[in-house]
């Protein structure tokens, strides 16, 4: 297997394209060759049966690149919804629907984190009020015990364990984490620390992009 062309703690080139589709808010977020487009529509009319009297109903749909959505995609929907529900000020939009749709455009690993970041940018693009923003990144522990951040598909296939973390920008509190595979407590905390540093880099990139677009 060809070895990685970048250092273990370096994330791939981030590329963000806001207003990718014609919706209230949208953004394409890429980690190298992994790309997800997220569209946000809302606050908009909600069906009576889904209506919440005191806050917005947040609905997330995750569409994979290949095949019909399965259980893994439903899990992604639940994760993205829980993550953004904790930052969106949904009490400002009672009896409305905020519909979030994520479509995978290219899959080269680290897809869930790509989707979370795309969602965050799309929500800002739509002007939905939030008390903070969520940024996410994943890493793997490979067979040699090395931690590689922002893994590609071929690296994930041969990994011992795979971890995705989502942090909030202001307090750097952990909003969400998911780990699969065999790993030690020490490895877990090392992954957490490395991902936290990478999250700051992602936040800086997002801030730069917002600045660029507004001027």
């Amino acid at each position: 297997m060809a070895s990685r062309k970048r250092p273990p703690s370096k994330i791939r080139t981030i590329s963000i394209e806001p207003n990718y589709v014609n919706r209230d808010g949208s953004a394409l977020f890429k980690f190298g060759d992994s790309a997800v487009v997220c569209s946000v529509n809302g606050p908009t009319e909600v069906k009576l049966r889904d209506e919440k009297v005191d806050k917005a109903t947040i609905d997330v749909i995750f569409k994979p690149l290949v095949g019909l959505p399965g259980t893994k995609d439903k899990t992604h929907e639940y994760i993205i919804r829980s993550t953004v529900e904790s930052v969106i000020k949904s009490n400002l939009y009672p009896r409305t629907l905020i519909q979030i749709v994520c479509q995978v455009m290219m899959d080269d690993g680290n897809i869930l984190a790509t989707a979370i970041n795309a969602t965050t940018y799309a929500l800002m693009n739509a002007g939905v009020e939030m008390k903070d923003i969520a940024v996410a990144v994943a890493c793997i522990v490979n067979k040699d015990g090395n931690i590689l951040i922002d893994p590609e598909l071929r690296e994930i296939e041969k990994a011992q364990s795979y971890h995705t973390f989502a942090f909030s920008k202001t307090s750097f509190g952990l909003l969400f984490c998911e780990s699969t595979g065999l790993f030690t407590e020490e490895q877990y905390f090392e992954c957490y620390a490395i991902c936290k540093i990478a999250a700051q880099e992602i936040i800086d990139k997002i801030r730069m992009k917002i600045q660029l677009d507004l001027t």
């Binding site: 809302g42 800002m124 739509a126 002007g127 917002i210």
Partner: peptide
Amino acid sequence: AGFLVRSGSIYWVENDQKR
């Protein structure tokens, strides 16, 4: 997310939202 703008003693955030 946007520009923090002030006019006199009024502050607000400007962005390009459509909703």
